[in-house]
Design a protein around this nucleic acid. Sequence first.
DNA 1: TGATATATTGAATATATGTTCAATATATCA
DNA 2: TGATATATTGAACATATATTCAATATATCA
Lengths: 208, 208
Amino acid sequence: MARSKEQNERMRETRKEKIRNAALLQFVKQGLFATRIQDIAAEAGIAQGLLYHYYASKDEIFVDLINDALDKTIEASYSVRDMETGPGEKIRFALEKLVETIEHSQTFLDTCRLITQATNSTAIPLEAQNLILEKRNIPYQVIEKIMEAGQKEGTVVAGDPKMLSIFFWTSINGLAIYYSTNDNRGVKLDYWVIASMFLIETEREREE
Amino acid sequence: MARSKEQNERMRETRKEKIRNAALLQFVKQGLFATRIQDIAAEAGIAQGLLYHYYASKDEIFVDLINDALDKTIEASYSVRDMETGPGEKIRFALEKLVETIEHSQTFLDTCRLITQATNSTAIPLEAQNLILEKRNIPYQVIEKIMEAGQKEGTVVAGDPKMLSIFFWTSINGLAIYYSTNDNRGVKLDYWVIASMFLIETEREREE
DNA sequence: TGATATATTGAATATATGTTCAATATATCA
DNA sequence: TGATATATTGAACATATATTCAATATATCA
């Protein structure tokens, strides 16, 4: 044999990641169908042909990316769920961090855009559709339970917890989508405006 | 001449509308690029070739639809602006109607989806890009002014009015996008949850 | 009815692009 | 260094699909 297995594995994974990053950039900008293999290859700085040594098809890259994106949002929701605070504080903290992330992390915006894009098209690979069916609702369910606990705690407003969870994620998602295509210099977001949808205002304890 | 001009005009416009409706359905489901001329023609119940007697290209249909969609949202925001009530009540009423529309009007959901799709892709016709640049911000500006007036009136919460307007529309848009791809039987939306982001709660005067 | 303009069709054409492949380069290790 | 496995390239191939077009149908009016 010519090269150590482990070394090959590592190099392969590095190159695959480079391709994924390039593809994410292009998919987010143009969408799955308008993105040509040539676009991805150029963005990654390689020839078209080489791409097929790492991925069998454009669809396969897309599926990989969707899977990553969904897992990221699920992980984020789990880290909120597992916080060692009361449910009201979980909601507050999550919104504070999410708004901050929208303002500062391009990767987060890209993740939101990709999921929204995929969720809103029937013309994506079947495997991607299945992943969405399987994973998309988990963050909604996590927040729903926290809302429910918050109502028992007395810190979250009344109303169907499922509805509150929908408002929670759709506000964040709508904001992320807006931010990814607008230049928002000069507008500083105050997460508390969103938080006030869900939290019973005692004395608004803010850090500014 | 063989047929009266006016009659021809009317027939032409009717047929064009039939094509637009079919195209909207397909664009919203699949996106501009994944939608084939054949899909639109089949949806409209005509042959591919006939489509080109009414529109010069797929892009031209898309531009027409985007223009319609943008005009609709602008009109909606103007009708709120021109209400004969105070700014706080304008915000309340607009949200009540918008949430109701999200729950009941497929056309509204399609409109939101199309605009979001277009806004989030650089791979759309140049003319569509220009329309978006030109028209997209108008509803944001309208709501921004109402927020400002509401703050003076004492019914709207403090904070950058531009930011409040962004929260207003991104919440509605995020919700619409979610609703267009989720079966939400069993969840009744309460617009007041969103309204509480913007309105200073006196005594929540609700109709239920 | 006949003349004329428009509507309609579906096959033909042109083109774009996803995928394959033969050729070449490069890296590792014995 | 030579053997071998993998990396890399870009041209070739196959296919899908936007658009065109020649042929035919249909409607209106004189």
